[in-house]
């Protein structure tokens, strides 16, 4: 029996509630790539809340991973070249496509946006294909 479904579902609901809170109180979409890009290329009046959001995210995740017994630990030891190529693609792609798993996935699907659904289907498909090729065809990861 798959046991990790309880923290997975609970964590998912927390992510959903985070997005609900940000929309209800501030009227903003909790899309991580959008928030990050907004800090990278600042627009007046829209920078400080984004920094606050990211600091909250980084601190809370760090505290949970450090202090909660049995918390899933980040992987270590993946190829540095792989991380850099992947990072470039994720940064470039989420900017070009205006969103990632949170903006298009959690928030876009939550407001029944067909545009976001298209993005989600495409990035799920290319991610699965990439993992398949790397692991089962080229034996690289």
């Amino acid at each position: 029996m798959f046991e990790a479904w309880i923290p997975a579902l609970a964590g998912g609901v927390l992510i959903g509630l985070s997005s609900v809170l940000l929309l209800w109180l501030n009227g903003r979409i909790a899309g991580i790539s959008g928030i990050m890009n907004g800090v990278l290329l600042p627009k007046s009046g829209e920078t400080s809340w984004r920094i606050a959001f990211l600091l909250g995210l980084i601190a809370a995740a760090g505290l949970y991973i450090a202090f909660v017994p049995g918390a899933p630990q980040p992987r270590q030891g993946f190829s540095t070249t792989g991380l850099i190529i992947a990072g470039l693609l994720v940064g470039f792609g989420t900017r070009m496509g205006n969103g990632c798993t949170s903006g298009h996935g959690v928030c876009g699907l939550g407001r029944f946006s067909v545009r976001s659904l298209a993005a989600v289907l495409v990035f799920m498909a290319t991610a699965m294909l990439t993992t398949f090729l790397l692991r089962h065809v080229w034996g690289l990861s």
Binding site: I32, A86, G87, C100, S102, R115, A119
Partner: peptide, 23 residues
């Protein structure tokens, strides 16, 4: 939209990180 999503997916599939978990 589609090209950006496709490129993002390739990067996600390589290392397993999307922006939130990476941060």
């Amino acid at each position: 939209l589609l090209a950006g999503a496709a490129l993002f997916g390739i990067g996600w599939g390589i290392a397993g990180y999307c922006p939130g978990p990476a941060l």
